[in-house]
Design a protein around this nucleic acid. Sequence first.
RNA 1: CGGGGCGUAGCGCAGCCUGGUUAGCGCGCCUGCUUUGGGAGCAGGAGGCCGGAGGUUCAAAUCCUCUCGCCCCGACCA
Length: 476
Amino acid sequence: MVTAITGQAEDFSQWYVDVIRKAELADYAPVRGCMVIRPYGFGIWERARDLLDLRIKRDAGCQNAYFPLFIPQSYLEKEAEHVEGFAPEVAWVTHGGDEELEERLAIRPTSEAIICSMYSKWISSYRDLPLLINQWSNVVRWEKVTRPFLRTTEFLWQEGHTVHQSEEEAEEYTLMILQMYKDFFWEDLAIPVIDGIKSEREKFAGALRTYAVEAMMPDGRSLQAGTSHNLGQHFAKVFDIKYLDEKQKEVYAWQTSWGVSSRIIGALIMTHGDDSGLMLPPKVAPVQVVVVPIIFDATKEKVLAESRKLAEELNSEGIACKVDDREGQTAGWKFAEWEMRGVPLRLEVGPKDLEKGTVLSVRRDNRKKEFIPRDGVSAFIKDFLPAFQQDLLKRAEERQEALTQVVEDYGEFKHLMEGRPGFLISGWCGDDACEGKIQEETKATVRVIPLDEMDFPKKCLCGKKAKRAAYYAKAY
RNA sequence: CGGGGCGUAGCGCAGCCUGGUUAGCGCGCCUGCUUUGGGAGCAGGAGGCCGGAGGUUCAAAUCCUCUCGCCCCGACCA
């Protein structure tokens, strides 16, 4: 064994870190809590980013823009809840060269403050609305504990910031974004998510309401994967975002903000990976198909030529295909290597295939082997990739279902939460104190309050009448 | 930020308790030959201020102090 990975069952956290390093997704940087996203990891991010960017433009109607990294302290402090929420984790710039700055500059932990300050200049009429802008950027949050991709000091994300004429319109848009995120996770990343509204204590600092999608990881912890906030008029009032409506009345605007971060790479690793390493959904795989030539001296040239020709052919048809024609490694080593890196399909081309006019295909999930007629390879792959994407989703969905159960009794709830049972669905009275007590006693939090109609226990865990269902889990 | 563990070659580790020659081992890397359909074999070779800074000592990877970083479990967050 050259590159052993710790087994998932043995130590899930260690498995996660092993995969990241061995598959060359990322490496630790000299600065605490920071990581380098290496080309293969960045390749996954680029694909996911492009898929989401398409939806942001097409479904959400946004245009991309870019705002500064620095936010003056006074701007960040305008919205009281906002500053209170972010103050503990802001990195500050105090000097420019040798000169001390008159006002400290925050390195953005999120961009509401700087963006709203500009919006206030740009908006003066109802005709300027809605204003729909998205930004792809990095942000910095000085977190106490960090983990690659899941929580790093600096991370990459997109943040959408929109302005609307009415509360209803803003609310509708917030929910539309939530649906867009759901589609992105289910369809593009093959990650099943639950969705709903956050409780008061879990909502974004400065928001009126926060909606979120959450994904259940194989270790039973929930990962907040995307958030969509209805900001109400909180920021409009302090940043003075006003416009003249059709009746010539000056009114404050209504806003939303929403984001998805490079954390999704962590979700991809955990959701689909196994003891052999990564397993990537074809839509985000930097390499969808790898061709491994089986080299013997007598047939080496012919096999290499055929392998390269095959890869060229597939690439020209839009399939991300790579030939592993390195000569230092044996075929078996390459098999293990590409499995670890999560490539959905491997094609082997050897002398026997040349004779028979076939190639051998091996899929990543179950290693099932199949001989494909050489002239049918491209058609085979075009069927295979979407099917594989579906298979991964189904596998993840089944696990999420297995990690979700309804619990009525608080004693049982506490007992289950001593482990990592995944999602526990219960009734909730809606009382903040009740939620706080449960969190204190079990470490579990309300992940979301589902919006869809569903059956739920009529009593809250505290014994009072339940108003709504709630998904509880321990969270990342 | 609290509790626990760990920093020695690219990776994984031994050596430390009980200070003492040129600091070892496995994998990887380089060269050559034989190999290649599930992590190849043999031979030769390169690669280290022992995380960093102070101290104790004739002498420090080893003892002491401080510091930085990583991992795990908690409290906080995308």
